[in-house]
């Protein structure tokens, strides 16, 4: 395998707090050296980066893939191309696909489909509830064994307080985390924008900020009750943030 030298790039590596112009040498498929000025070894292929950023592969920790179920929108192959174009090498896939990722075989399938792309590592989330319907717990232990990295019902909130309690409690036994879409579903239903002046002017059905605050407050209480771990996938209200800060 020939050496490859990439020159004229901005080297970025948050882990070592590196942010400097320089070059990077690849030898035998691994990074051999990076820094300000590297001499080109004999026979090395040189690539001019033209001042672009060179950094570790990015991780998209919350991606709704079209496959399985909505291949007309996106396939794993097309998602891998899009990811590569954006510097993303690892992607955590939401489980609310069709079928939902609520069976160990589907977790293994997603991992394998990622490997087939040659450029994208897919880390599947497992469903919290069967079919992401919010009614019965999914087989979290078996999903973890198959390679799930955590549990969420994707773009659907776990709406029932009882179900969220059970999920946090059960997941705790396996040291796993629940990733919640923090939006009280009965308040948010049918909404498209935060309720307020802008939604009123644009004529969009609103979702009150309280929808987020209620679910964040509730799940903080349930995490305390169960000793479980919850991660809020996205927070967009001031009061939601305040609740998390104080928790």
């Amino acid at each position: 395998m020939t050496d490859t030298l990439i020159v004229n790039v901005r080297l970025l590596d948050p882990a070592t707090r590196l942010d400097a112009p320089g070059a990077l040498l690849i030898r035998g498929g691994v990074i051999a050296h990076c820094g300000g000025a590297i001499g080109r070894p004999d026979g090395a292929v040189e690539i001019d980066g033209g001042g672009a950023i060179l950094c570790p592969g990015l991780i998209d920790m919350r991606a709704a893939l079209g496959e399985p179920g909505y291949e007309y929108r996106e396939t794993i192959a097309s998602a891998a191309q899009a990811a590569a174009a954006g510097g993303i090498t690892t992607l955590a896939a939401l489980p609310d696909s069709l079928p939902a990722i609520d069976d160990p075989a589907l977790v293994r399938l997603l991992r394998a489909r990622g490997e087939e792309t040659g450029s994208l590592t897919i880390l599947p989330y497992g469903a919290v509830t069967r079919g992401c319907r919010g009614e019965e717990l999914a087989e979290m232990g078996l999903l973890l064994e198959a390679g799930a990295i955590g549990f969420t019902d994707g773009q659907r909130a776990v709406g029932s307080a009882r179900m969220m309690r059970l999920a946090l409690s059960y997941a705790r036994g396996f040291g796993a985390r629940i990733i919640q879409h923090p939006e009280e579903p009965t308040l948010a239903e049918g909404g498209a924008a935060t309720e307020g002046e802008l939604a009123t002017r644009l004529g969009l059905p609103g979702i009150p900020a309280a929808a987020e605050e209620i679910l964040v407050a509730r799940d903080i209480s349930l995490a305390r009750l169960t000793g479980g771990a919850v991660h809020f996938a996205h927070v967009s209200t001031f009061d939601g943030l305040e609740l998390i800060r104080r928790a």
């Binding site: 069967r130 009614e135 019965e136 717990l137 999914a138 087989e139 979290m140 232990g141 078996l142 064994e145 179900m163 059970l166 059960y170």
Partner: peptide, 13 residues
């Protein structure tokens, strides 16, 4: 009642 996801998971663990 949903306290355990399935018999096969329960037996496994």
């Amino acid at each position: 009642r949903g306290l355990v996801p399935s018999a096969r998971e329960y037996f496994r663990f």
